[in-house]
Amino acid sequence: MSDQVQEQIRQAQQGDASALAVLLREHYTFLYKYLVKVTMDPLLAEEIVQDTMVRCMERISTYNGSSAFSSWLITIATRLYIDRKRRWKREAEWKQQEEQGARSIRWRFESRGEEWSVVLDALSRLPTAQRVALLLKHYYGYSYEEIGAILQIPSGTVKSRVAYGISQMRKELNEDGE
């Protein structure tokens, strides 16, 4: 973490609203991109980014610097997403929303003349728990222990979710002839 970010965090913790605003703005795109990959739904990602920003405003004083600020935001955002999914009682509606989200990303690719990827398609069909674990491990480079701390589950469970996620995606891609 750079000295500048540390200084901004210190000022924000002392109640400097401008420092907090700069800090949030600098991490906005990073957080949004993370949540698009986790939710595979740009609209839902935007909602959760806003919820995360509000939660960060409430809890900035509790941030102790034991992990990177971006990791702290990832932890808050992931837990907010999991809580929201837990509250969403009807799985069918949730699935429908996820499919709409993936369609909207696909449309974004195609509207820019880019080819939609079967790999991303398979990722969007992966159960949320496996998708989050796989992303955190192989895209963001966290260890199993760190992911366990983020998701509040044992590292062994993380390991099995990552392994299941990879095998499920590879199976799907093999069936598609990729």
Binding site: A21, T29, R112, E114
Partner: peptide, 28 residues
């Protein structure tokens, strides 16, 4: 391959406009 595709997905949102400092200050 997965990492490459995820980078491509990230690149789709490179032109994202985060809220301005003033907007965030008002929200705070």
């Amino acid at each position: 391959k997965l990492t490459g595709e995820l980078h491509r997905l990230d690149a789709q949102y490179d032109d994202l406009n985060p809220p301005s400092i003033q907007e965030l200050e008002r929200l705070i």
